[in-house]
């Protein structure tokens, strides 16, 4: 009976991992909702707010998701422990950044966790481009977001932004792209 239960639990964990790799939203949503209270509780007892808990938890969830997208990645603990360990690590970093010194109260078991160099590099890249986009100003931000992030056609963008034709919009896009490039250079 016990052995059978263990088997189902293991099977579920494996099928969860598969669901992440296949982008199965229903299962991912289920897991998201299942473990959020754990991290919420952890952040609340360690002098954080609910909004901060949501932020930290989503960061951890993204680390889990992106790790599982890599074919060579092997999850060597339960999803729960993984999410808790990453959340714990990120929250510790935030407390350190805020110069708050507290002893973390742990609510679950965790594994010492240091992120690999690939994700550290990606996070740094994302932080830079995000900051550059913020500083870019309008109409550049909307044009670049619509073309590169939302995959709108130049004709649609020209119409939306009030340019007479797609070529004028393209000239504007070129200028914006260069400005973004310059901003990134400054930020680095």
């Amino acid at each position: 009976m016990k052995a059978a239960m263990k088997k189902t639990a293991l099977f579920n964990e494996e099928s969860f991992v598969k669901a992440f790799r296949e982008n199965n939203e229903a299962v991912m949503s289920k897991i998201y909702k299942l473990y959020f209270p754990m991290v919420l509780h952890f952040v609340l007892v360690n002098s954080g707010t609910e909004d901060e808990a949501k932020d930290i938890y989503q960061e951890a969830f993204i680390v889990l998701y992106e790790s599982l997208q890599r074919p060579d990645f092997q999850l060597r603990c339960s999803i729960k422990t993984f999410l808790y360990s990453v959340s714990r690590n990120h929250w510790l970093k935030r407390l350190q950044a805020k110069k708050i010194k507290t002893d973390l109260k742990d609510v679950e078991e965790f594994i010492p966790f240091v992120e690999d160099s690939v994700s550290i590099e990606n996070e740094a890249r994302l932080a830079t481009i995000e900051a550059a986009m913020q500083r870019l100003g309008e109409p550049c931000r909307t044009i670049l977001e619509d073309y590169y992030l939302n995959k709108m056609s130049m004709t649609d963008i020209a119409e939306k932004m009030g340019y007479t034709n797609a070529d004028n919009a393209k000239t504007q896009k070129y200028k914006c792209f260069n400005r973004l490039k310059k901003l990134i250079k400054e930020l680095k």
Binding site: I62, N122, L126, T128, I129, L149
Partner: peptide, 16 residues
């Protein structure tokens, strides 16, 4: 590459 990362990240955040 940076813009593509940003695109994926925003889509993921929206999903979450």
């Amino acid at each position: 590459t940076s813009l593509d990362l940003l695109k994926e990240r925003r889509q993921l955040r929206a999903k979450l």
